[in-house]
Design a protein around this nucleic acid. Structure first.
Length: 868
RNA sequence: GGGUGCAUAGCUCAGCGGUAGAGCACUCGCCUUACAAGCGAGGGGCCGGUGGUUCGAACCCACCUGCGCCCACCA
């Protein structure tokens, strides 16, 4: 990308117009003032006449709609906004939509607690249902119909969406609010169903009956990406199995004795000599008396437990693997509600069947105690259970361990069982540009570690339904393998209320009729399509051609395996290309104790109170000081820094623009120190531009900020008097100051949009956010042949003068009677070019330069005035 | 168990092969015609540990320690 060659300002352009400066400039109220102005002007509205090469398209993460905006969320979005603002000023038309992730479980949960209701699909729809927010002590949840429940979900999310939009505007996000979408709206449901049907027709999506991880509280299947391990207390139980041929009993250890009735085999490692003689023989399970084979498998670990384990259907995912590979029978007893089935399983009889009566209807926990008691009575429990802690899989939003339940579910192929697809996904990960680059390996490890296809169906209510129905044969049996799919043109559909093609509603649930698919899609099955949703895929081909594939996907590190991965997958399957060229991964926000902020820890800081205190620019500055992917402490002390900078911008601008000369031009810049300052600024522009273009907004800010403080402390102090005085050399300072101010405001604009816009409005037409990004060429002419050392050398001498005054505890306006500066000849020659400014800035009466070997500055202060 | 990132001043972080930096906090000054929500000056560091590469290491390599995050088949 060519850097810094846009928008050169002709030399003769008038730099300093009449400025209208408020009496007392202040940061107060800038968010409201400019937020409303930008909205009224449509400043960030996307211009869709631009072509793909002129456009910069961002696939903004749709935040989950919750009660209040989290500082960590704001942190990431601010960084992206700085990039968006840079790209816009740099000449790209920015496609910057915002979405709301409002489908799925979090919303259902909120509706349940907010209104005190629960969804019961058997309850009829009530068009006049009146609900009010539940009181604190309302424990009972009223059962309402699915359509009523979904309506409440939509009502609640709309309230939150308005609130969120207001907060984002206050933070200064430059998104185009006309492009807002929600993951549950018609467009999103249409895209999700359309993409699913395409996957289905190409064989990439399929339904299968089989064991899957199941949350017994939510009563839904969950996907691999949503598991998490938690440490729980458990115990090893040593259990004896009798040998069927009357030989020695076999001892196994298990943390889940309640699964004993589900045991289908014992397994040992093929090389384990201890059990070699047993293999191929049968054993009999304790208490339940079921005859079971002893089998071998390489995944059995000789050093775990007793080295021989029981295989149950199903205790963990290894059981599933063994069950599949060894062709074992299915003996599940745990139902979808997490309880042991009421009827006695068919494989139990006699004493085993009697024993089962003690388990029927119980939860896993209750059944465990019952089984331990039965084992103890039967003398099959060897010793007492040994307490231990171990990792158990939970649904990340769940409270009880996941069970494995057999059910019919929808899947999308993700490379877990397809090496060719896996390789394509890995290649895509290498092609994508990651910021920072080390985040790439998280993606690679996830793809390499996948072991099941992506389970996309959920047995929930508020989500995108599968656009599928099933025939019911004449005997009333639902034919699950005979799916009727919706026609693309009519999407979105709800198979619970719409009839499939060729049927009418009266045939629902009847022999010879149809049944709608009862499930909804996992939220990621929709949000993996955000590029397609926003870019008008299939419905607006003109827009699609202009923005897809997009430029940037910003997001958090924890959802690389879900959102990022699934978006790449869907795009690869549907379009054969990456959905975007770059991804930027933000870091975590930690509280000042270095712990990750989370609601459960109660250490969450809201961004709005901080904006009250430090201004949006202050909070934005804090966020933009952090490198992409780097964790940052939420330290209000650091936000003071940004606020201070914003105030400084205000005051320095007031000084420069208050000089009042209306007609200076770049041709007026003649003084060496003025040209030196602009030469240094030229380098700043080049560096900042390069950094921004490489997604290193923090480097751009740092470089600009360091320059700006030096500009204020040294250059501005040195030339102040000359600028006040006017005349040819005064005009030089005025022109240089105006030039620098214009450039600096634009360099700061992406990070601090409010204060820069405020100052810009004092003396420029239009918005700073649509002004051209400063180009090095703007400064090159004025800075030609400059010696940048003049400014540094003069600044160093000024520092010596200040030091002397400080040491004597005198004011900086105190007169210096005599200043003698000795240095090497070329340095002296350089310094002489700034002599007048040095005299004025230091209040020096007598200044002498001497040539010598090393720097020596002698400062003699005037005596205190005798009080009159 | 594997992977990955971090470890520099009291705090938050830059620096990533050539004499230790910034901001905050702290100390001492200063009403100075942009700014007292300001300005100036100052104190403060065996750059986590141990080895190695190099003329030279905060920086490169190896190992170790501590913290965070991601993943793993968890009997």
């Amino acid at each position: 990308m060519a850097v810094g060659e846009l928008g050169a300002v002709p030399v003769a352009t008038i730099l300093l117009r009449m400025a209208i400066i408020p009496e007392k400039p202040s940061l107060g109220g800038l968010e409201a003032k400019w937020g409303a102005d930008w909205q009224a002007r449509g400043l960030y509205r996307f211009d869709r006449t631009k072509t793909r090469d002129q456009i910069y398209a961002i696939d903004t993460p749709p935040p989950t709609i919750s009660g209040s905006l989290h500082l960590g969320t704001a942190f990431g979005y601010i960084q992206v906004d700085a990039i968006a603002r840079f790209q816009r000023m740099y000449g790209r038309e920015v496609f910057y939509p915002m979405g709301w992730d409002d489908n799925g479980l979090p919303t259902e949960r909120r509706v349940q607690t907010h209104y005190g209701v629960r969804c019961d699909p058997n309850v009829p729809y009530d068009p006049d249902l009146a609900v009010a927010p539940a009181g604190k002590n309302d424990k009972a949840q009223r059962a309402i119909s699915r359509p009523n429940f979904v309506e409440l979900c939509q009502r609640l999310t709309e309230e939150f969406e308005d609130d969120f939009e207001q907060q984002w505007r206050t933070i200064g996000l430059s998104v185009d609010w006309d492009l807002t979408y929600a993951t549950i709206n018609d467009r999103s449901r249409r895209v999700a169903q359309l993409a699913f049907l395409r996957n289905l027709s190409r064989g990439e999506a399929y339904a299968a009956e089989g064991p899957s991880m199941w949350d017994v509280d939510f009563q839904t299947a969950v996907a691999q990406a949503e598991f998490e391990d938690r440490e729980v207390n458990g115990a090893f139980h040593k259990i004896a199995f009798a040998a069927a041929d009357g030989g020695d009993p076999v001892e196994i250890e298990t943390t889940r004795p309640e699964l004993l009735p589900s045991c289908v085999a014992l397994v040992a490692h093929p090389d384990d000599k201890r059990y070699a003689a047993l293999v191929g023989k049968d054993v009999v399970s304790a208490v339940f008396g079921v005859r079971l084979p002893v089998v071998v498998h390489p995944l059995a670990e000789p050093d775990k437990g007793t080295g021989i384990a029981m295989i149950c259907t199903f205790g963990d995912t290894t059981d599933v693997l063994w069950w599949r590979q060894l062709g074992l029978p299915l003996r599940s007893v745990i139902q979808r509600d997490g309880r042991f089935q009421a009827e006695t399983p068919g494989w139990l009889s006699g004493a085993g069947a009697e024993a089962y009566a003690a388990l029927a209807g119980k939860t896993s926990q209750q059944a465990r105690r019952a089984v331990v008691e039965l084992l103890r009575e039967a003398g099959a429990l060897i010793g007492e259970p040994r307490p231990c802690t171990h990792q158990v899989k939970f649904f990340e939003k769940g409270d009880r361990p996941l069970e494995i339940v057999t059910s019919r579910q929808w899947y999308i192929r993700n490379g877990a069982r397809d090496p060719e697809l896996r390789d394509r996904l890995l290649a895509a990960g290498r092609e994508l540009r990651w910021h920072p680059d080390f985040m790439r390996v998280r993606y690679e490890h996830w793809v390499e570690g996948l072991n099941t296809d992506w389970l996309i169906s959920r047995q929930r209510y508020f989500g995108v339904p599968f656009p599928v129905w099933y025939r019911i044969d004449d005997s009333g049996e639902t034919l699950w393998d005979q799916a009727i799919t919706a026609e693309e043109a009519v999407l979105p559909v709800d198979p619970q209320s719409d009839a499939p093609p060729g049927y009418d509603e009266s045939q629902r649930g009847k022999p010879g009729g149809f049944a709608g698919d009862p499930d909804v899609m996992d939220t990621w099955a929709t949000s993996s399509l955000t590029p397609q949703i926003t870019s008008g895929w299939e419905d607006d081909p003109d827009l699609f051609a202009r923005v897809f594939p997009m430029d940037l996907r910003p997001q958090g590190p924890e959802i690389i395996r879900t959102w990022l991965f699934s978006t790449v997958l869907r795009s690869l399957l549907e379009h054969g290309v990456l959905p975007w060229r770059n991804t930027s991964i933000n870091g975590w926000i930690l509280d000042p104790d270095r712990k990750k902020m989370s609601k459960s820890k109660g250490n969450v800081l809201g961004p709005m109170p901080l904006i009250e205190q430090f201004g949006a620019d202050g909070v934005r500055h804090w966020a933009c000081r952090a490198a992409p992917g780097t964790d940052t402490a939420a330290d209000p002390n650091q936000m003071k820094v940004g606020r201070r900078l914003a105030v400084k911008v205000l005051n320095a601008s007031k000084f420069v623009l208050g000089l009042g000369a209306a007609d200076v031009t770049a041709a007026d810049i003649i003084e060496p120190i003025d040209r030196a300052m602009l030469a240094q600024l030229e380098a700043v522009v080049a560096d900042a531009t390069e950094a921004f273009a490489a997604y290193e907004y923090h480097r751009a800010l740092e470089r600009t900020e360091v320059f700006f403080w030096q500009f204020c402390d040294d250059y501005l102090e040195l030339v102040k008097m000359r600028a006040y005085r006017g005349g040819a050399d005064g005009r030089s300072a005025q022109a240089a100051l105006a030039t620098a101010l214009s450039v600096l405001l634009r360099l700061f604009a992406p990070v601090m949009p409010f204060v820069t816009e405020e100052v810009w409005s004092w003396w420029q037409d239009g918005s700073v956010h649509r002004a051209p990004w400063p180009a090095a060429s703007e400064l090159r002419e004025a800075a030609r042949d400059a010696d940048p050392a003049v400014l540094d050398a003069a600044g160093a001498v000024l520092a010596e003068i200040r030091k002397a005054k400080s040491a004597e505890q005198k004011s900086q306006r105190h007169e210096v009677l005599s200043l003698v500066v000795e240095d090497e000849p070329d340095v002296v020659a350089t310094l002489q070019q700034a002599e007048t400014d040095l005299r004025h800035a230091g209040v020096v009466t007598d200044l002498v330069f001497k040539e010598g070997n090393e720097r020596q500055v002698r400062v003699q202060l005037a005596p205190d005035a005798v009080p009159a």
